[in-house]
């Protein structure tokens, strides 16, 4: 497979996953607010700034909007063209990448991503959005999941498909860590205790945004505590949005691409992903909390960046000399 094509498939997959997760984060935050309707304005604002912090787009956000309100944050994360990570930009870039590899994606995949893109640019999406945030975000999550289902069912499960898996699971591990981190940034109202009512509701929201509620409840019957939720979303090895699960899948996909047994590594990306995978397997939640949850998640994010860089170097770099033959479609830096 062409290195450029592997690159485009990887990024296409990441962007779609990113758009879906942005929709999840916003949706949950809106729902969370409904539980605290009688809050004052300052309290409401405290709900939105953490999203911007967690997505690491703070600087850009405040260069466009003076303050983080429900409207400004939701618009920034959903439609803002200047924000390269907004849902609109992500789908646009996913489609741009898909366009370069149309000989590899099935027509059904292309039509799905293309119609999602056309929908986002249309009046219709704006009016759905204005009518109900819930409907809008659900339409994005549904469209992304439909795309993944179509991909599984119509695309050849060969090397190209493996690059899609690498992109999808890298992004999903990263986003789950950020969703958890939103909770870290979300301060409890004064007088509320850790483990108190508000705290529990917030942790439930985190689970919901990862579609993890049912799976969590079966494992931790009747209990919601910060360390349990974190344990589940970080170290569970069967839930498809937990960080460990995603890293395992990422590691497997990398090994399928190289053809090397997954007990060994044949390149730097495999070495890094294997090490991350075993760290996740052998860490207890007590270790993680004593390291500091936020610091731990931060570390996970930068280790994912390292895996990704090594993978791109091994399989995807295709420009002769950086800057000399700059093909317009250059994937941006990691977000």
């Amino acid at each position: 497979m062409l290195r450029r094509v592997a690159d485009a498939l990887y990024w296409m997959s990441r962007y779609i996953e990113r758009a879906e997760n942005n929709a999840r984060i916003l949706d949950v935050n809106i729902q969370l607010l409904l539980d605290f309707e009688n809050q004052n304005e300052a309290a409401v604002r405290r709900h939105w700034e953490p999203i911007i912090n967690s997505l690491e787009d703070r600087e850009l956000f405040f260069s466009i909007h003076p303050e983080a309100t429900a409207e400004t944050v939701v618009d920034f994360v959903s439609f803002e063209k200047k924000n390269p990570n907004s849902i609109y930009s992500c789908i646009g870039r996913a489609r741009e990448n898909a366009r370069t590899v149309r000989e590899l994606v099935s027509s059904e995949m292309w039509e799905q991503i293309n119609s999602l893109y056309l929908y986002l640019g249309s009046e219709r999406s704006r009016s759905v959005f204005a009518g109900s945030g819930y409907e809008f975000f659900k339409s994005i999550v549904d469209a992304s999941q439909l795309f993944q289902g179509i991909t599984d069912a119509t695309m050849n499960h060969g090397e190209g498909w493996d690059f899609l898996q690498v992109g999808k699971y890298t992004e999903r591990a990263d986003r789950t860590s950020r969703i958890l981190d939103v909770k870290y940034h979300l301060l409890l109202p004064t007088g509320e205790k850790v483990g108190g009512n508000v705290d529990v509701v917030q942790w439930l929201a985190v689970l919901k945004s990862c579609s993890a509620m049912e799976a969590y409840r079966k494992l931790y019957v009747g209990q919601v505590a910060p360390w349990m939720v974190a344990e589940f979303l970080i170290t569970n090895d069967t839930f498809p949005r937990s960080i460990r699960f995603c890293v395992n899948r990422l590691d497997l996909a990398l090994h399928r691409i190289s053809g090397i047994s997954h007990t060994h590594y044949g390149n730097e990306a495999e070495r890094l992903s294997g090490r991350l995978s075993s760290d996740l397997a052998y860490s207890t939640i007590a270790d993680i909390f004593s390291f500091g949850l936020h610091q731990y998640l931060d570390r996970i994010q930068s280790r994912l960046v390292e895996v990704s860089k090594a993978m791109l170097k091994t399989y995807c770099d295709w420009m002769e000399e950086e800057g000399k033959m700059h093909y317009p479609l250059k994937s941006p830096a990691e977000a």
Binding site: R3, R4, E103, I257, W318, E320, Y327
Partner: peptide, 21 residues
């Protein structure tokens, strides 16, 4: 068939190659 852009191809010893994974 593969669709390529110029930067996907490289010439070595007067032979054209494409850069694959």
């Amino acid at each position: 068939i593969e669709i390529v852009v110029g930067a996907d191809l490289v010439v070595e010893n007067a032979r054209v190659y494409m850069k694959t994974t």
